[in-house]
Nucleic acid binder design. Sequence first.
DNA 1: GATGAATGAGCGTTCATTCAT
DNA 2: TATGAATGAACGCTCATTCAT
Lengths: 196, 196, 196, 196
Amino acid sequence: MKKKLASGSRRDALVEAAFYIIAKEGFEGLRLREVASKAGIDHSTLHHHFHSKRDLIAAVLEYATKQFRPTLPANDASPSSLHEHLTFLSRMIVDRPEVHVVLREFDLHATRDARVRAIITEREAGWRERVAARIRIAATTGLWPPQIDPTTGAELVIAVIKGASFNPKRAAELVQSFEQLLVQTSTRKTSQKERS
Amino acid sequence: MKKKLASGSRRDALVEAAFYIIAKEGFEGLRLREVASKAGIDHSTLHHHFHSKRDLIAAVLEYATKQFRPTLPANDASPSSLHEHLTFLSRMIVDRPEVHVVLREFDLHATRDARVRAIITEREAGWRERVAARIRIAATTGLWPPQIDPTTGAELVIAVIKGASFNPKRAAELVQSFEQLLVQTSTRKTSQKERS
Amino acid sequence: MKKKLASGSRRDALVEAAFYIIAKEGFEGLRLREVASKAGIDHSTLHHHFHSKRDLIAAVLEYATKQFRPTLPANDASPSSLHEHLTFLSRMIVDRPEVHVVLREFDLHATRDARVRAIITEREAGWRERVAARIRIAATTGLWPPQIDPTTGAELVIAVIKGASFNPKRAAELVQSFEQLLVQTSTRKTSQKERS
Amino acid sequence: MKKKLASGSRRDALVEAAFYIIAKEGFEGLRLREVASKAGIDHSTLHHHFHSKRDLIAAVLEYATKQFRPTLPANDASPSSLHEHLTFLSRMIVDRPEVHVVLREFDLHATRDARVRAIITEREAGWRERVAARIRIAATTGLWPPQIDPTTGAELVIAVIKGASFNPKRAAELVQSFEQLLVQTSTRKTSQKERS
DNA sequence: GATGAATGAGCGTTCATTCAT
DNA sequence: TATGAATGAACGCTCATTCAT
C-alpha cells in the first residue's frame, strides 16, 4: 500500500524526482516514466499533477531557484553583505553542486523554451539587482573598487559564480581569489586616500 | 543524381550540421535524421561516416574546440598575452556565441559520457596551462596581481569566460571590467613600489 | 473506437499471432509490427504486454508446448499408453503441423537464446521421463523390446517424432511402421517365451 | 595485401563462411556483411559473386548437401550397406553436427523459399531412393524386417536421422538402438526360419 | 486521484542492394 | 574484381500523451 500523501506533497515529490534526474542525466535524460516511478506513482498519474512535460520542467525551475531562498543571508544592508553572498554561493556550489548544475541546464534550455526563458530572465534580473545593491554598499566601505560600476559588476559576479559552478572542487578557492582582487584593490585605494 | 563531394567533406558537413543543431536545440534536440538532411544525405548514410551517435558527438566536440585554434593569437611570450587572450575569447563569445554555447553543452554532457569527459578534461588541462603561463608573464610586468597564484588565477579566468558565455550581449564589458580589476591592482602595486 | 477485450486476451492474441507467423515465416520472418497488426493493435502497444521481442518469443514457446497438454491422454498406467502417446503425437503432426514446425524452430533457436534453451531443456526432460515411464510399462506387457533400455528408447521415440514432424504427409504411416518394429519384436519375443 | 585466390575459391570461401554463420546463428543471423568480412572481402564485392542473398543461400544448400558425397561409402550392393549408411550418418552427426543443423534449418526454410524447396525435394528424393535400395538388400539378408515396406522404411530411417540430429550427444546410441530393433527382429525371424 | 491499455510519431540502427570509380 | 558511398525500407524500441475505468 502506498502512503497517502497530503495534496501538494505528491506534486513536490515529482518535482524533486525530476530535479535530480536533470541533475544526473540532463534534459536529454528526463523521462516522465522515470520521474513518476521515482515518486512512486504510475506514469499516467503524473499527468494529473502536470498537464505536460513542459509544465513539470517549469515547476522544476521554480524549485531549483527556490533552493536559495530559505538559506539566503537576509542582512542585505551590512557592509559585508557582498562577501556573505559570495561565500554563500560558493558554499552552495560545493555542498549542493546539483542545484547549480541544474540551473546551468536551464540557462541553456532557456533559449529553446519561451516559458523557461521568461522565468529565468525575471529571476536573473532580481538577482542582478540584489547583487548590484550589495556592490553599492560594498563600494561605500571600500570593499568594491569604485571604478567598476555596480551594474556591470553584478554581471561579472554572476559570471564568476556561473563559471565556478562548472568546477565545484575548486569553486571555493576560485571565488576567494576573486574577492582578493576586489578587497585588495579597495584596501589599497583606501590607504591611498588615507595617505593623501 | 547524387552530388559528388571530395572525400571527407561529407563528414565535415555532417559535423557542422550537428554542431549548429546542438547550438540551437541542445543535445536533447539532436536527431541524426535532421543532421543528415541538413548535410543533404540520407540518414542511413550518416552511419557510413559515423558508427554511432556518440561517435558523431565526439567529432562535434573536436570540431568545436578546434574553432579556437586557427585564430588564436600566437605571441604567447608578449607581456600583453593574457590581455590578448581575454580579448580574443570575449570577441569569440560576441561574434560566434554558438561555439561557447555548444562547449557549455559539452561541459554538462561530460558528466554523462566518459568519452566526452576524457576529451574535455584533456583540452581544459591544456587551456588551463596556457592561461597560467600567460598569467606568469603578466605577473612579471605588473599586469597580474602577484598575490593570486597563476594556477588558481587560470581557474578564475576560465570561470569568468565560461560565465560570460551565458550572456554574449554583455560579455565584452564584463571581461573588460574583470581586466580592470587586474590591471588597477597591479598598477597601484607598481606605483606603490615606485613610491617606496 | 478501441475494441475492449478481457484482460489477458490481448496478450493471448499477440502470442497466437506470433505463433502463426513463426510457423509460416520462421524466426527470420517474425516482425513485431506484423504480430501487432495481426492482433489488431498498434505495434507500440505490443511493448505494453511484452517488454521485448525475446519476452514474446518465450511466451510463444510456452504457448506451443501447452498445445499438447489439454489433449494429452491421461491414462499413463495403461499397457497401451505408449501406443496412445505415439498415436496422439502423430495425429498432432498431421492435424496441426504448425505446432511441431514451430517447436523445431525453437529446437534450433535454443542454441542461440539461453532463455529458450532453458525452457526447452526443462520441457524435454519432462517429456523424456514420461516417455520412458510409458516404455517401462509397455516393456512389462511385451509391447516394447526389453533389450532396449527405456531411457535410450525415449530418446529414440523423441527422435522419430521430431524427424516425422518434417514430413507431416507421411508422419502417420511412418510412426505406425515404427510401432510395428516394436510390437513385432515383442510379439515374437512373447511367442518365444510361450514356446519355451 | 590480400592473397589473390583462384577464380572459384573466393566464391567457395563466401559459401563456407555463410555455412558456418547459419550453423551458429541460424538464418536469422545471416548477414551478408558478416559473410563478406569472414571471407576477407568488402561486402559489396560479395554481389559480384552472388547476385542476391537468395543466390548465396542456394549455394550454401548445395555446399551442405555435398558434405556427404566425398565420404559416402560407395559399396551400395553389400548386405550391410544399410548399416554402413546409418553408421556413416550418425558419425556425421557426432563429428560434424553443423552439417545436419544447417540442413534442418534448410528443411524449415524450404517452406518459404521455392528455390530451396526444389533443391531439397530433389535431393531428398534421391536420398530416399538410395535408402530404400539399401533396405531392399538388407531385407533379402534378414537385416530388415520384411513386413515394413522399403519406401515407408526409408521414410522412417530419414526421420530417425533427422530427429537424432537435434541431439548430437546421444545420436550414436540412439541410431544404434534403432538398428537393434531392425536386426533383432530379423535375426529372430531368421532363427524362426531355421527352426522351422 | 489513480491505473492500465492504447496510440502515433519518431528514434538510432541495420541491412540488402546499387552505383560510380 | 574490388571498393566506398549512398539509398530506402524496415526494425525493435521509446516516450509523451490520451482515455476509459
